[in-house]
Design a protein around this nucleic acid. Structure first.
Length: 584
RNA sequence: AGGGGAGUCGCCAAGCUGGUUAAGGCACAGGGUUUUGAUCCCUGCAUGCGAAGGUUCGAAUCCUUCCUCCCCUGCCA
């Protein structure tokens, strides 16, 4: 599974990096060991990191599968090219961000298996720690006549921005003197003005066909305390201005973001080019590259919709195993290695795409098959009584913990006269090609004996309650006679005397249609049977299991111990079923 | 409508400085192994690269026109 080197990730971003490296673009790039403008890095040594990438989340929500794509992309690039990947909180909007999200994001990145700190560097950064630099950068622009304080209202600015087809109109404050702008900007910072009263704008071109270049706002007034800087600031930079600066301060080489920022790239480049002209930054400057975000079928990934699912209680919180969040994935039993395999398989490109959920699930199965030891569980029990079996006898059966990994060892399971088997493993009138139990048919009790069905019993409603069999003592698994009777069917079982009751939560997809986001109301599309809770029997060896432990219940699927388990009740969440090629 | 992107097998995705039988994965179909109808292993699966023209000995790759889809008019990111 990990020898998936045939699918060796090659994508347009790697091609760009290869080309940049071949051109020796970063040969003279210095790094002072910490972020800063050109003066910080000026006399520093050559950066040991061949490239620098970053994952820059805004701490205003929980990480989801889409973030996982970006995290894995950026960190694996840094890993593969001998570089570094920074985790940077893009916390420039105090109204939405908080520490709780910061913590959960750090946990999520760690959970996926990535480190951003070691004995050499600690690459955990906050955009809010750069506010002084950003303020300085804004003044550089103002001094160069490239920035002005606009007293128009938000509405006026919007109207004067023009439309997609009509050019905008210059602000009456556009030609204010540099000194006035400087003074106004300082007064903004000093708290002299109210929220929204004025804004600092870059002076570019109000007639640009690219709306992002029509004198974008770069600083706004917000008298709101910040989770990191407290009351120090009442003006905050806009993302479009802050982001290129953050990247340049951190000497990022490849600034990778999603497609919707493509139109923003000219401004990103404008900011850096101007600041480099005034020696605020050194070359090489970071370059922005865009890839298409992850879309998964049968899933919603927009923050707004995710919040709705949680707040309106369609799911039980952000870590509900049905949620496409990282905390949900962890609780569902999705494995970090599975995420990486999945990302390798789907690649990175610029085309919009919707990936089958099946592809994701299949990558998980691949990983889980390797990672999980096996257990036996009977989920839908009916009784099987071996008529010719001594009711005082207990037969010890040896069971391998992992069929492909003998080094995982064996365990013992006890077989007695009265057993639980799956209701699905018996049919009164078998469908074509059915090779499990039916009257007259022989089947192997996995790891035990071959039995032949002699009779069965029904309840008042016609449901099978008990199946009667005779066993063939010479056919015990692992003995010479085990092959003396050939059978096709092979079913699992548990002694009614030696089994433990557990709780099972079988999860299924949360949405019925392929693309719920396209629907008028995605909430109508919720799968009402996305969770099924039931009690089941499991082998005794399950008793001392711990939260987070994962197993394959043979012939069923992959299960993980839920945190809500306690000494009285062990709860298992179904991560995924096994593939099933058998159709009736 | 102005600007920016994307269209290669059911779903992804290489290739795209022109020259190979158009990689690979997932899915699917068939076969083998197997005490999980799982895993694993084989085999098959685009005369075709959004469409139409053109250039060329030769085009998915170059040119022209057209079509479809996505993104952009926050003092969000």
């Amino acid at each position: 599974m990990n020898d998936d080197k045939s699918t060796a990730p090659t994508n347009f971003i790697r091609n760009i990096i290869d080309k940049n490296l071949a051109a020796n673009l970063y040969a003279n790039k210095t790094w002072a060991g910490q972020p800063g403008p050109s003066k910080t890095h000026k006399n520093a040594s050559i950066d040991a990191a061949k490239i620098r990438t970053r994952f820059p989340p805004e701490p205003n929500g929980y990480l989801h599968f889409g973030h996982a794509k970006s995290i894995i992309l950026n960190f694996s690039l840094a890993q593969d090219y001998g570089g570094r990947c920074h985790l940077r909180f893009d916390d420039t909007n105090p109204e939405k961000e908080n520490e709780e999200y910061v913590k959960s994001i750090i946990d999520g990145v760690h959970w996926l298996g990535y480190k951003f700190q070691d004995e050499y560097e600690n690459n955990l950064y906050y955009a809010s720690n750069y506010f002084d630099h950003m303020y300085d950068a804004a003044k550089v622009l103002i001094n160069a006549g490239l920035g002005y304080v606009d007293k128009q209202t938000a509405d006026e600015i919007r109207i004067n921005r023009g439309t997609l087809t009509d050019p905008g109109k210059n602000s009456p404050y556009r030609d204010q003197s540099i000194d006035d702008n400087l003074q106004l900007f300082e007064e903004m910072k000093a708290g002299k003005y109210k929220d929204g009263e004025m804004v600092l704008r870059a002076k570019i071109n109000m007639a640009s066909p690219n709306i992002n270049l029509r004198d974008p706002a770069i600083y706004r007034i917000r008298h709101v305390p910040h989770h990191n800087t407290g009351d120090k600031w009442c003006i905050y930079p806009m993302y479009t201005f802050a982001h290129p600066i953050e990247d340049a301060l951190e000497k990022i080489t490849h600034s990778i973001c999603t497609l919707e920022f493509e139109d923003q790239r000219p401004f990103y480049e404008w900011v850096l080019k101007k600041l480099a002209e005034f020696e605020f930054f050194d070359k090489p400057l970071p370059k922005q590259h865009e890839f298409s975000r992850l879309n998964l079928s049968h899933v919603v990934l927009s923050k707004r919709k995710l919040i709705q699912l949680v707040e309106d209680n369609y799911v039980n919180g952000w870590d509900d195993p049905r949620m496409p969040t990282l905390v949900g994935a962890k609780r569902r039993g999705y494995h970090p290695k599975g995420f990486k395999l999945f990302m390798d398989r789907i690649g990175v490109s610029k085309s919009d795409s919707i990936i089958d959920y099946q592809t994701f699930e299949d990558a998980m199965r691949d990983v889980l098959n390797q990672e999980c030891n096996r257990k036996i569980a009977v989920l839908n029990p009916i009784k099987l009584i071996i008529e010719n079996f001594d009711e005082n006898h207990t037969e010890i059966c040896t069971v391998p913990n992992h069929p492909q990994k003998p080094e995982e060892g064996n365990r013992e399971v006890k077989l007695t006269k009265e057993l639980w088997i799956e209701a699905e493993d018996f049919e009164i009138i078998p469908p074509p090609k059915y090779f499990r139990l039916f009257p007259g048919n022989k089947v192997r009790l996995r790891y035990g004996f071959v039995v032949e069905c002699t009779d069965y019993e029904l309840d008042n409603e016609g449901h099978v309650t008990t199946v009667y069999c005779n066993y063939f003592p010479e056919t015990k698994s692992g003995t010479e006679g085990s092959d003396s009777i050939k059978v096709k069917g092979n079913i699992h079982w548990l002694s009614t005397n030696f089994s433990k009751e557990i709780t099972i939560r079988n999860y299924d997809r949360l949405f019925l249609s392929e693309n719920p986001s396209e629907l008028d109301n995605f909430l109508d599309d919720i799968n009402q049977s996305s969770i099924e809770t039931k009690s089941a029997y499991c082998e005794e060896s399950i008793s001392d299991v711990k939260t987070g432990e994962q197993f394959q219940f043979e012939r069923h699927g992959y299960y993980i111990v839920d945190p809500e388990s306690n000494s009285d009740e062990i709860i298992f969440n179904r991560t995924a079923t096994l593939r099933d090629n058998w159709q009736k």
